[in-house]
Simulated scan of single mutants.
Amino acid sequence: MAPVPSLPKKSLGKVLVIGGCGFLGHHIVSLLVTSSSTTSSQISVLDLHTTRNRRPESDNVAYFDGDITTLSSILPIFEKVKPDVVIHTASPTLAGGSKAMYQKVNVEGTKCVIEACQKTGVTALVYTSSASVISDNSSDLINADERWPVIPPKAQTEYYSQTKAEAEALVLAANRAPASPKLLTVSIRPATIFGPSDVQLIPAMINVYRNGQTGFQLGDNQNLFDFTYVENVAHGHLLAARALSATSQLNIKPLDHERVDGEAFFITNDSPVYFWDFARMVWKACGSTLGTEHVWVIGKDAGLALGGLLEWGFWLVGRTPKLTRRQVRYSSMTRYYDISKAKKLLGYAPIVGLQEGIERAVGWFMEEAKKEEEKKGQ
C-alpha cells in the first residue's frame, strides 16, 4: 500500500457531496470524515434519496433529499448549506439506465448543478466523469492520457459515455466563466471502479464463482486493463478539491503547465493487469483453489459471433442473453491509462493496492452475505 502524500492538513470549508449516498459518493464522504490530511468545517450530502449508506449521527454529516434535474429542488439546499466545495458524483450506473435517464441526470442534472454553484458563490466544483469518454469500445487504449481526444457522439457506442463526456464539457466550460468568474472546476476520470458496496463489477464476478462458471474465458487474456479501488478514486477527488481551493486563494492565474482548474485527470490504481487475471484474483479471494487447467478459452471472434446469435435469438423472445457482443468486446480489449498528470499536479498516488482492494471488496460482500443468511435463520 502506497503512503498517503505527506501534505499539510487543510480545511476545504463547507463541502457538499452530490450523490453522497451512492457507491463512490459515500466513500468520498467517509474519507472526508476520516482523512488525516483533509478536514471540512461542514460536510453535507445531497442525493435523490438519503436513506442508505449514511454515516453515524456522531459524524455530524447533514443529509438532504433533492433532485439535481430540477434547479428549484436543489437551489434551496445550496442556499442553506452555502458550500465552498461541491463534489458531483451523481449518475446512473453504466448498465443501469436508459438513454433518457442518462441524458436527464448526466447532462441536464449537471447543468442544474453548475447553475446552482454559480448562483450561490461556490468556489470549487469537482465532477466525476469517466475514463470511458476516450474509448470507442472497440479500439485498444494503451497508456492513454489526457491528450487523447474525447470520442465524438457519432463514434461513441455507449450512450452513458457520451453523456458523461457532454457533462464534463459543461463543467470545464464553467471554469472561470463570466457567469461566475470565481468558480473553478475540474473533472476526474476514474477507470473501472470497484470496492465495498460496488453494484456492478465485484458482485457479478462473485456470482460467476458461486455458480461454478469460472471455467470460461473470452479472449486470449493478453489485454491489460485498469481496475481502480474506490477509496483511491475518492482520494483523487479530495486532492482535486484541495488543489482548486488552494488556487482560488491565489491572486494570479496559474501557468498552463501548472493549472488544475479547467482540467481533466485520469485516476487509476496505476497497476494495469490482464483482464482475466483480475477475475481470478477475485475468485481466489472468494476461496477458489483452481488454476487455469479447467478453462475453456473462447476466442474473441468466436465469442462475437456467438454473442450475436444469442442476442438475435433472445430478441425474438423478448429477453437478454447472458453472453452479448458487448461483454465479449469489453473483456477482450486493452484499456489502461497513464496517470502522470494526476501524479504531478494533484500529488496523486493510490493509497490502497490492487490486491488489498480486491480482498477488502470480496471480504465486504462475504460479510454482507453472512448477515443476510443470519437474518433468514432468525
Rank of each mutant, 00 (worst) to 15 (best):
S187I: 03
T120E: 09
W148C: 11
S129E: 07
R280E: 08
V17Y: 02
V328L: 06
R326W: 15
S180Q: 10
N211L: 09
G109C: 03
A349E: 09
V105K: 00
I252L: 01
G313E: 15
N207G: 10
L306N: 08
T192V: 09
K164N: 03
Q156R: 00
F64H: 09
T268M: 05
K99T: 11
G287I: 11
R326M: 14
N143T: 12
S40I: 09
R325Y: 02
L244G: 02
V273D: 04
A369N: 14
P254G: 08
A62V: 10
P196N: 08
T192N: 09
G20I: 06
W312F: 12
E231T: 15
P5G: 05
W312H: 04
A279W: 01
L224Y: 14
A100H: 05
I142D: 07
A2E: 14
K253S: 12
A2W: 10
T292Y: 07
V328E: 14
L239S: 09
L238K: 01
D338T: 07
K371N: 11
S58L: 10
A369T: 10
G121R: 02
S129N: 05
S197C: 10
T50K: 00
D277E: 14
L24F: 01
Q103C: 12
Y127K: 01
G96R: 02
Q162T: 12
Y330I: 10
N221Y: 01
V352D: 06
E158K: 01
T128Y: 00
W276Y: 10
A177S: 13
K300S: 10
